[in-house]
Design a protein around this nucleic acid. Structure first.
Lengths: 238, 238
DNA sequence: CGACACTTTGACTGTAGTCAATGTAAGTGG
DNA sequence: CCACTTACATTGACTACAGTCAAAGTGTCG
């Protein structure tokens, strides 16, 4: 059995590839290629005409939509192990931009789809993945439409803590504590939460003053009491 | 060639079934059954343990999520020809409720999935359908997060006009005019737009005063100038 | 050190929310 | 048939939450 790159992949067991047989994995590995992006780069523009699929290996990718006058809304965040790209030859109707330094494991789209035809389990995984994204989008609709600024920010911190788990960015000992680096600037957080930069900043300050979180260098967040933060977030289900 | 119910189906050419071969259509018809619901009925509760798929034949179904304290957000509306039900044995994580009188064309889920195995085109249609819903959800995220109350209401009217086209509820002569019945109460509109009832009402009044729309009996809307309403909505792409 | 990007903080404003009253229509029962 | 109830919608007065505008703070990089 040949040793392949996937064997040492940091997101292997959580990504789409996790469910593949050895055969399938080797076929997939044969068409895989790493690509690196620096913060702010437009990923669709770089990967020619979106003729690709990809897994996020490290970093965070934001998917966003804008209005003609410049107002922007982030409609999805792809964390390590998440999938990127649109099935069925269509164009993705969002802008994909690296929110941090990003490493992708990319697949040539026609060749990936050829694999899909041989391994129907792959298409099913893709489908299930899309259903999860739909659920996440609708959860976020509840947040955007009905939550207060305080609830939004609390929900966001919990979501990031959850999705950054198992990515090695953690160093938590206490069970009710979470430590992580924010992958987004205040501006991005605002665009994700439907708020302004100032409001996000003020809510973070409030959380700090109340002793619920600590922030170092504007980026490293320590949640001191996950349970209490969940209460503030209004829903447990994000 | 046997005559089947689908031949005279009002949503046949727009629904999932539209892409099926005669063979497939006849198989599907064999397991189809109409079910009627009156406004306010919980559809998941009635159709035993969600063991079903369905097409909306007439009326509108709302999908919603709620917070523990009762705040609610409608996360999707299913119009005639739209599909209802969750693939892969999972439970749908939303509440489905009839917003109006509703007629569904239901399919027993295990038997539908058996068909899926024989006709892979069917699963693909289902997948494409899910991708469209994801796009719609994300478009709505932009509305919820970034649009003003006026833009939200204008966008909503345009969306309804568009999705009610070809359902026989229309009687438009002028090209730049749309007439339709609102399928939602003010309360539902508010829950869909992330607003309060009062704000929705005020925005409608403003549109009436400006002469852009007319409303009869609280339900029948006449849009006098679609182009101008689109400008008010901020984006054309809903 | 200075320039730049990002963040925080403060003072003020405005949009949408809240609370309350009134209006409208449809349905019920005496 | 008409009072009464009920559900839904509109309107008004007031409030508050988040947005806007502006200034100052913090950290990074050349």
């Amino acid at each position: 059995m040949a040793v392949i790159a996937c064997d040492s992949c940091s997101v292997r067991n959580r990504a789409l590839c996790g469910a593949l047989s050895r055969d399938e994995l080797e076929s997939l590995n044969a068409i895989a290629r790493f690509r690196d992006f620096s913060s702010g780069e437009n990923i669709h523009a770089e990967l020619d005409v979106q003729n690709y699929f990809a897994n996020v290996i490290s970093g965070v990718v934001k998917l966003s939509k804008s209005m003609p006058d410049g107002r922007q809304q982030i409609v999805g965040l792809q964390f390590p192990s998440n999938f990127l790209g649109r099935p069925f030859g269509e164009q993705s109707p969002y802008v994909a931009e690296a929110a941090t330094e990003v490493r992708l494991c990319t697949f040539n789209k026609p060749r990936f789809e050829a694999l899909t035809r041989n391994y129907p389990g792959l298409e099913r995984r893709l489908f299930e993945n899309t259903l999860s994204e739909l659920d996440a989008a609708r959860d976020w609709m509840l947040l955007l439409g009905r939550k207060s600024a305080a609830e939004k920010v609390a929900s966001f911190l919990l979501m990031v803590a959850e999705r950054l788990k198992d990515t090695g960015c953690h160093s938590d000992t206490a069970p009710n504590t979470r430590t992580f680096n924010l992958p987004l600037t205040r501006a991005d957080m605002a665009d994700y939460l439907g708020l302004t930069i100032e409001t996000v900043s003020r809510q973070l300050t409030k959380l700090k003053s109340s002793g619920l979180i600590e922030i170092e260098n504007f980026r490293t967040v320590v949640v001191k009491d996950v349970g209490r933060l969940e209460k503030l977030a209004g829903t447990t289900s994000l």
